[in-house]
Design a protein around this nucleic acid. Structure first.
Lengths: 121, 121
DNA sequence: GTAAACCTTGGAGTACGCTCCAAGGTCCAG
DNA sequence: CTGGACCTTGGAGCGTACTCCAAGGTTTAC
């Protein structure tokens, strides 16, 4: 599949796809005329990028992670270590989010209480 | 308190503090010689910035949020709306993180299973 | 009175993640 | 064979969030 169709399928611009390519993502196969080609595996990679980005990982982190996933078959120990540290990081982020959520909830409760009081005066 | 002490207390560089000031954070009081002054309230603001950043909000989002918190007393309806939408956003991020965590966990389990099999062969 | 440790400003530079553009090649339909 | 829709490259530009000067004023300690 060519870059236009690929970009449409994963929901980003062709410029963004080329940029991701420069960073190191995707198989870099080209046809004779120089056109880039993308596969279903590249779609998976693009989905991984989207997921990674949505939870706050940088492109380089996602690249390192996806390469470790690919190397997983060869180097179990390192892959497991990396995956475990990623999971720990995610757990920390979830904990952080929950703390801030609690703050916001308290503020919201306080807002509502003040409002109720004002209405009753 | 002057900028150096303040920066040390909140754990960032003085340059970063000045940058946050330019963005619109902190009370902008100065002594006669032009030195910036910071209060305990500014420490709270700096903590809010740290929390917000850690969960992926931009400085502008955090600024808007902190201003809405301050305006809360004046405009309950808008503050409540904003807080609720922030909470919803946080919930979405937590859900996203949990999805990716599950993926990573599955990958890790798979890695371990393959390893165990290889050892038994 | 001078050195060290503060503070000020403005502006340049950096890394990230795009986004846009110009100039040009390719492919296909009518 | 021409128009339109593709594709290529390189390079510029942008917003975010700093980071690092240089040049100079202030304060404190000896």
């Amino acid at each position: 599949m060519l870059i236009g169709e690929f970009a449409k399928r994963v929901g980003v611009s062709t410029d963004t796809i080329r940029f991701y390519g420069k960073v190191g993502f995707f198989s870099s196969s080209r046809s004779e005329n120089g056109y880039r080609h993308y596969t279903e595996k590249d779609i998976e990679t693009a989905d991984l990028i989207a997921s990674g980005k949505s939870i706050g990982f940088s492109l380089r982190e996602i690249l390192a992670f996806s390469q470790e996933m690919a190397d997983g078959v060869l180097d179990h120990a390192r892959a497991q270590e990396s995956l475990q540290s990623k999971i720990n990081l995610i757990d920390e982020r979830i904990a952080s989010l929950k703390r801030v959520r609690k703050l916001a909830q308290q503020q919201l409760d306080y807002c509502r209480a003040v409002e109720a009081q004002e209405l009753s005066v």
